[in-house]
Computed example of a mutant assay.
Amino acid sequence: MPRKVMKEVLTAVMNSLADGLLVTDEDGYIILYNQKAESLLGFNGRIALGELVKNHIKNEVLVGLIDKILTLHLPFHTEEICLIDIGDSRLRVHVCPVKDENGLLIGSVTLLHDVAQLTALDKIKSNFLAMVSHQLKSPLGSTLLQTSILLDGMVGELNEKQRDLIQKIKAKTKGMVELVNDILDVCFIEEKGYITQIESLNLSETLQKAIEMMQPQLNDKNITLKINVEEHIPPINGNKSSMEAMFINLISNAIKYTHSDGMVSIELSKNGQYLQLKVADTGIGIEEKDISRIFDKFYRERSERTKNISGTGLGLSIVKGVVDAHHGTISVESKVGKGTTFTVLLPVN
Rank of each mutant, 00 (worst) to 15 (best):
I169D: 14
T306Y: 07
D19R: 14
L62E: 09
T24E: 00
F247N: 07
K68W: 14
L112E: 03
T341S: 14
K289A: 14
N239K: 04
A116N: 04
L52S: 13
V279S: 06
K209A: 00
P2D: 15
K125L: 13
N249K: 06
G193M: 13
G321N: 08
V93D: 05
P139R: 10
E287L: 08
Q162D: 15
E8A: 12
S89P: 08
I31A: 10
T147H: 06
Y33F: 10
G285T: 04
I30C: 06
P216W: 00
L203T: 05
S334A: 04
L70E: 10
N249D: 07
R90D: 06
E212P: 00
Q167C: 11
I57N: 04
D182Y: 00
K270F: 01
I86G: 03
G42M: 04
G42T: 02
V93L: 05
S310I: 05
K168R: 06
V155R: 06
K240I: 03
I189N: 11
L91Q: 07
D27S: 15
H73K: 15
I309R: 06
I227N: 03
L136P: 02
G283V: 11
L316Q: 01
D164A: 11
I189C: 08
L62R: 08
H56D: 02
C82E: 10
Y257C: 01
L118H: 12
I31T: 14
D27H: 15
V336Y: 10
I189Y: 11
G28M: 09
A325H: 11
F128T: 08
H327M: 00
M176C: 12
S89L: 14
K240T: 06
E199S: 15
A245K: 13
V186W: 08
K7R: 14
K209E: 06
D164P: 08
I189T: 08
G311R: 01
K54D: 12
S265D: 11
V180L: 12
H113R: 15
M213K: 10
K4Y: 13
A171D: 15
Y257D: 00
S292D: 08
H77T: 14
L346E: 03
Q208A: 14
D85I: 13
S200I: 07
N228E: 09
L121Y: 12
P75C: 03
K289C: 09
F43T: 00
I31H: 04
L314M: 04
F76K: 11
Q117N: 13
S142C: 03
L32K: 03
A116D: 05
E101S: 11
K240Q: 12
Q197T: 05
L10A: 15
F76L: 08
N159Y: 07
G272F: 00
T282Y: 01
F342I: 09
S269N: 11
I47D: 14
T329G: 04
I330L: 11
Y194R: 12
Y194S: 07
K174A: 12
I149K: 04
M1Q: 01
D88A: 14
D290H: 13
L268V: 13
I86D: 03
S331T: 03
E79L: 10
V109N: 05
G313V: 09
C96R: 13
K256L: 13
K256C: 12
D185T: 02
L346K: 05
